[in-house]
Simulated assay, not measured.
Amino acid sequence: MLDLLDVHTHTIASVHAYSTLREMITAAKEKGLSLIGISDHAPAMPGAFHEYYFCNFKVIRRDAYGIDLVMGAELNIIDFCGSTDLRQDLLDRIDYAIASLHAPCIKPGTREQNTAALIGAMKNPKVKIIGHPDNPKYPVDFNMLAKAAQKHHVLLECNNSSYTPGGSRKGSRELAGELLTACKKHGTMIIMGSDAHIDLDVGNHQYAIEMIKKYQFPEELVINNRPELFKKWISE
């Protein structure tokens, strides 16, 4: 599978990550990616930088590194309506947003509540990706999620970190099949994300690819092989 982009990555601005912006970009270039996105955690995550971090991306020259660069954020969903933790005026300054459910920011609800939270977040036009939707701590209705993602022009993520043996989201591998089956049924596009917190993991989609092959998911519904389509996707 041709794999040319990774847009779920974290730098030292996420505090619990360990590489700089330049180190992450350099790693992406060395690994042959065509596009990298930086998506540091928004302020509700404990230890994350102040919201001002997201107000000055204009100083980052996107053409300076010899690789396409987009600057985003991983938003924390903070209620079951899908509200997130970055003001709209700051969202307007970034290229894209991932919206995710994280235990430090919202306690798991019922299947219906968790599904409503993710679908609610999709309604924000800046949210282009739902992060690790197959986290077993937050059970969801995958058919409803896939249908809503198709409707709202949102990508559902196959998160490599979730599928890594010994990772923090145990049980995600077992749920990946349900996610991919629902996306296949509804023609919903997905994206592989490394969720890299260090430069060594940039572009590492080994286990996500394993899941995609295991469940015979069609490659034409995986956006990672089309950087130009992704850039168009986040601009619409």
Rank of each mutant, 00 (worst) to 15 (best):
207 Y>V: 00
190 I>W: 05
75 L>S: 04
15 V>S: 14
38 I>W: 04
94 I>G: 00
62 R>Y: 08
141 D>T: 03
133 P>H: 07
196 A>T: 07
199 D>C: 13
9 T>I: 07
98 I>H: 03
79 D>G: 06
109 G>W: 05
113 Q>T: 07
50 H>N: 15
72 G>S: 10
28 A>C: 07
214 K>E: 15
169 R>A: 08
110 T>Q: 10
226 R>K: 12
216 Q>N: 14
20 T>G: 03
57 F>C: 07
113 Q>P: 03
68 D>E: 15
138 Y>I: 05
120 G>E: 05
88 Q>T: 11
219 E>N: 10
124 N>I: 11
117 A>Q: 03
146 A>C: 01
9 T>N: 15
159 N>D: 13
132 H>C: 05
120 G>T: 04
178 E>G: 01
122 M>T: 01
3 D>G: 00
124 N>A: 00
14 S>Y: 01
58 K>C: 10
20 T>F: 09
129 I>T: 03
2 L>T: 13
11 T>N: 06
199 D>M: 11
123 K>C: 09
6 D>H: 08
173 R>D: 09
33 L>S: 04
86 L>H: 08
39 S>M: 07
194 S>Y: 03
146 A>M: 02
64 A>K: 15
95 D>N: 13
207 Y>Q: 06
6 D>V: 08
151 K>S: 02
222 V>S: 00
32 G>M: 10
51 E>H: 15
219 E>Q: 12
63 D>T: 14
160 N>Q: 07
100 S>E: 09
56 N>C: 12
104 P>H: 09
116 A>R: 13
80 F>C: 03
113 Q>R: 11
141 D>I: 06
86 L>E: 08
121 A>R: 04
94 I>V: 12
101 L>S: 06
68 D>C: 07
220 E>R: 13
228 E>F: 02
166 G>E: 09
214 K>I: 00
46 P>I: 08
125 P>K: 12
168 S>G: 01
9 T>H: 00
117 A>M: 04
176 A>G: 09
188 T>Q: 14
235 S>K: 13
165 P>N: 09
59 V>A: 09
150 Q>F: 05
73 A>L: 01
